Simulated scan of single mutants.
Amino acid sequence: MSIVITGASDDLIEIDGDITEEFYGNDEDGDLLAFSDGTVLRISYTRSGVWRIVPITTGPGFVGITQAPEGDEDNYTDRAEVTDATWVVHGKAIAR
């Protein structure tokens, strides 16, 4: 199982692969995605027009993040990959 996370437009978070979903995003502080393997990612749309993904916590299925370059209109989103997750939850806050 593999899941790829990207941003689209200026307000959509896309989940593709074994789980397919589209979430409305673009909170100023970023949006959180939590996966069943324990991975938590923060995704945000920056003022420079690039979607950035940052790991908060990584689980065993976290593969990594490929960063998009600044200023490339054709490649405006980081790309994260998580494997072996059976669900994903979208939210705005995390408690520790």
Rank of each mutant, 00 (worst) to 15 (best):
1 M>R: 10
1 M>P: 11
1 M>K: 05
1 M>Y: 04
1 M>S: 05
1 M>A: 10
2 S>G: 14
3 I>G: 03
6 T>D: 09
7 G>C: 01
7 G>L: 00
7 G>V: 09
8 A>G: 15
8 A>W: 07
12 L>Y: 15
15 I>Y: 01
17 G>M: 11
18 D>V: 03
18 D>A: 10
19 I>A: 06
22 E>T: 15
22 E>H: 04
22 E>G: 11
24 Y>W: 12
24 Y>C: 03
26 N>K: 09
26 N>E: 05
28 E>L: 11
29 D>H: 11
29 D>L: 14
29 D>S: 11
31 D>K: 12
32 L>A: 03
34 A>N: 08
34 A>E: 15
37 D>R: 13
39 T>W: 00
41 L>D: 04
42 R>D: 07
42 R>A: 08
45 Y>P: 05
46 T>K: 08
47 R>T: 09
47 R>V: 08
48 S>L: 12
48 S>W: 14
49 G>D: 01
52 R>D: 02
54 V>E: 00
54 V>A: 02
54 V>H: 01
55 P>L: 00
55 P>F: 03
56 I>Q: 12
57 T>C: 14
57 T>K: 12
59 G>E: 03
62 F>Q: 05
64 G>Q: 09
66 T>I: 13
67 Q>V: 07
69 P>T: 02
72 D>G: 05
72 D>Y: 03
73 E>F: 13
76 Y>A: 06
76 Y>Q: 15
76 Y>I: 10
79 R>M: 14
79 R>W: 12
80 A>Y: 01
82 V>C: 04
83 T>L: 15
84 D>R: 07
87 W>E: 13
89 V>F: 10
89 V>A: 14
90 H>N: 06
90 H>S: 03
92 K>F: 06
93 A>Y: 05
95 A>V: 14
